[in-house]
Design a protein around this nucleic acid. Sequence first.
DNA 1: TCTGGGGTCCTAGGACCC
DNA 2: TCTGGGGTCCTAGGACCC
Length: 408
Amino acid sequence: MNAAPTKLAEANILHADLDAFYAAVEQRDRPELRGRAMAVGGGVILSASYEARARGVRTAMNIRQAKQLCPEIISVTPRIDAYSQASKEVFEIFNDTTPLVEPISIDEAFLDVSGLGRLVGTPEVVATQLRTRVAEEVGLPISVGVARTKFLAKVASGVCKPDGLLVVEPEGELAFLHPLPVRALWGVGKVTSEKLAAKGITTVGEVAAMGNGNLESIVGRAMGGQLSSLAHNRDPRRVVTGKRRSSIGSQRALGQRHRTFDELEAILLELVDRVCKRLRDGDRVGRTVSLRFRFGDFTRDTRSHTLAAATSSTATFLDAARTLLVARRDEIVERKLTLLGFTVANLSPADAVQQALPFDDRGSPQLDQAVDALRDRFGSDSIGRATLLGQSTGFAVPMLPDPGEPPR
DNA sequence: TCTGGGGTCCTAGGACCC
DNA sequence: TCTGGGGTCCTAGGACCC
């Protein structure tokens, strides 16, 4: 232990992040894929093994492109259930390590391990044990960054990937942070990094050296304040448990072929149905519906509407969503819609709004239950279900395209 | 690089209220 | 009649993250 002039708090926030998660699950379950360049995804790559990444293959890349870079690449169909199960097992280990776990996504979380010192050991020891357990009990590689702040812990896990562990000691924080490219800062993507580059700013250290006024004039007030704080490693956010999603949505890429408006309505119905089922399964209700559009020229657009009160009724949401869709009918046909998304936001727990509502919720809980039961029994997509729903709402449902057809 | 699907947060203007 | 300042909600859109 060094006798530092000022004793800094210990680095005790962990950022744990599974490596190439979907691809790693496949390599675990199919030994013939180990050590090979492989990727998970149908038309587009969701996750690529490190062997494939070494050849330049990236997430969101088209499979054809990937094959040009790496002709021997093996692509496998996603098995979302297997990934959910693996995630559950990993989070059980997280929760077993400390009660202070903040999930970020299916494959990463923050853990606050302060106070475990006497019981288990230093954060480094805790992190090492965590990595060993995930490897032995779930069979997956995981990288862990350890630091005093969330931001730095996350940067650290990114730097030590794959299958690494990196502790950023309090004394070495700025020396670690300042040489990194601005993209390392949370909230800096393509647009912001280009704006900064235009002013000659490319590293975190250069951001830290800038005056606040100057920074804000480039990236805006809120972003400026945030970037300045992060660049000086000021990040007071604590690890928070029990957070809930604030919106639930579903979307569908439509491909290049022409879609009739009837087809779009049918797809919208499926999206609404899927989202509402998830809403009800989570015992939640929502008030704001929005539709997301993407057109042939890749411009995007949204339209939203807020109901007088929250609901989880498929028919009510379908009504609102259809109204938004119909309002843009001509434009949608003309500009060639390539993606349709439906999201419900403004969520609250279902039991918070059981009073009689002074608005016309024309949904039927009985119907919703019946439809959910069918779905649980027969799987996620069925024409019969859609037809049933259509009849009950008086909304004529055209024949749906075969949902089982794999994307080409 | 010719493009998936799930999300979060921020901004700005308008409506409305006090 | 003209007018200030502050707050909240809603909508649309942009950027970003995994």
